[in-house]
Simulated assay, not measured.
Amino acid sequence: MNKILIFSSKIHRGGAEKHLVRLCNGLWERGWKVKIVVTQRGGGYESLLNDEIELSYPNRNIRSYTLSLLKSIPRLKKEITSYKPDLIFSLQDGPNVALLSLMKALKIEIPSIIGVQNNPNHLSGVIGTSVKELAKKTYGSASKCISLSAGVAKAYERMIPATIGSFSIIPNIGIDDTNTFVESARNRLNDPIALLAVGRLVEQKDYPTMLRTVEVLKKSGTEFNLRILGDGKLEESLKDQVKLMGIEKQVFFEGYVSDPGKYYISADILLLSSRWEGFGNVIVEAMSYGLPVVATNCPYGPSEIIEEGKNGFLVPVGDHEAMAKKIIDLKKGNVIYANLSKAALNQSRRYNTEVVSRQYEKVFLGVI
């Protein structure tokens, strides 16, 4: 039995964290012994892990992300020594630089693989800049790097030439094998059209563009409702924008929803207005319920999942008029909705736990 030690920040809410949980479960199903060192307790997704997967917790919880990461390094060292893994894997830039710095300092020769999840050009501020500089010094020492999209891999290779040739492109696990799939494609849109958005209420997701999109729909006479799942620091300002636009009877903020399945089932179209992404897990989740997606062609991810006009649509970043036009075209029947739904459903099955875990395992076995 191969043993893998995984180093991660708090396993909570994000798409990367949900992917990690699914990957760990998939590896366990494939016969791996899995142990995870987490920097913080209380991650909402921990309960989704298989009971046989061991978690190594800090003695006390530290709320600061940076401090919790630094305080976890001695415990990570202890686990490497006692667990004696065949392979160490970390996910996201903070844990990656901490792991590789530790291995370099102690001359640990166990194979190490790092996973990157977002565009490095958006690492900013004091902490982000520090992490970026450490990445430049350490990422070249990893046995392999795994990126969730080709665009993100190329961005890292431009920033860190030492990583050129070390990347494998493996998408995130967007759906569980246990998902209850829609049995067949959807045949027609609801009236009013049921629009759905899923994601944190932060600048990256560019919800103002989405709200301007539905404002255009209202002015065109298109009947709709939009439900937004997520919370974040922009919630109040977005609600104020909705009131100013006079669309409070059509737009509903549902807050953070741990299991959005019922919302996917009742929706017609997923909207994604992001300025940037690493992959776009919600695109795959929506497609697994037969939902076509209208998304911005942002760097990176959506264009690697969505086939224009086949299972969804891509529009320029910030272009609310183009996004509204795609929805109106669907409503008018200029595009056959049932065909999009069927293609979306088929596309989603490329991203299930079994398929993606097998791809990870192939890379892992290649360095052991």
Results as ranks from 00 to 15, higher is better:
Met1Tyr: 14
Ile4Gln: 01
Ile6Asp: 04
Lys10Gln: 03
Arg13Asn: 09
Glu17Lys: 00
His19Arg: 09
Leu23Asn: 05
Lys33Trp: 12
Val34Lys: 04
Lys35Phe: 07
Gln40Ala: 02
Arg41Asn: 00
Ser47Met: 09
Ile53Ala: 01
Ile53Val: 13
Ser56Thr: 05
Asn59Ala: 11
Ser64Ala: 08
Leu67Ser: 06
Arg75Glu: 13
Lys77Ala: 14
Glu79Ala: 06
Glu79Tyr: 00
Ile80His: 01
Tyr83Thr: 00
Tyr83Trp: 02
Leu87Ala: 07
Ile88Gln: 01
Ser90Trp: 14
Asp93Arg: 06
Pro95Met: 10
Asn96Ala: 09
Val97Gln: 11
Ala98Leu: 02
Leu102Gln: 13
Ala105Thr: 04
Ala105His: 01
Ser112Tyr: 01
Gly115Arg: 11
Pro120Asp: 11
Pro120Tyr: 10
Leu123Thr: 01
Ser124Ile: 09
Thr129Gln: 08
Val131Ser: 09
Glu133Val: 04
Leu134Trp: 12
Ser143Arg: 08
Gly151Pro: 09
Ala155His: 02
Tyr156Pro: 07
Pro161Gly: 01
Asp176Thr: 10
Thr178Ile: 07
Thr180Arg: 13
Phe181Gln: 02
Val182Lys: 12
Ser184Val: 03
Asn187Gly: 15
Leu195Trp: 11
Val202Thr: 13
Val202Leu: 15
Tyr207Ala: 11
Thr209Lys: 11
Met210Leu: 12
Met210Ala: 04
Thr213Ser: 09
Glu215Asn: 11
Leu217Thr: 04
Ser220Asn: 11
Ser220Ala: 12
Thr222Trp: 03
Asn225Gln: 15
Leu226Cys: 00
Lys233Met: 05
Lys233Ile: 11
Glu235Ala: 12
Lys239Leu: 01
Asp240Ala: 15
Lys243Asn: 11
Met245Thr: 02
Ile247Leu: 05
Lys249Cys: 09
Lys249Ser: 14
Val251Thr: 08
Phe252Cys: 10
Phe253Gly: 03
Lys262Phe: 08
Tyr264Gln: 12
Ser266Glu: 15
Ile269Cys: 00
Ile269Asn: 01
Leu271Glu: 00
Leu272Glu: 05
Asn281Glu: 05
Asn281Ser: 04
Val284Glu: 06
Met287Ala: 07
Tyr289Leu: 05
Gly290Arg: 01
Glu304Val: 10
Gly312Pro: 02
Phe313Asp: 13
Phe313Ser: 04
Leu314Trp: 05
Val317Tyr: 02
Ala322Pro: 00
Met323Gln: 08
Lys325Gln: 12
Lys326Pro: 00
Asp329Leu: 09
Asp329Phe: 03
Leu330Trp: 06
Ile336Lys: 15
Asn339Ile: 03
Asn339Gly: 04
Leu340Ser: 00
Leu340Asn: 10
Leu340Ile: 02
Lys342Trp: 04
Ala343Met: 08
Arg349Tyr: 05
Arg349Val: 06
Thr353Trp: 06
Val355Cys: 08
Val356Asp: 07
Val356Tyr: 14
Val356Trp: 11
Gln359Arg: 14
Lys362Trp: 01
Gly366Asn: 12
Gly366Trp: 06
Val367Thr: 11
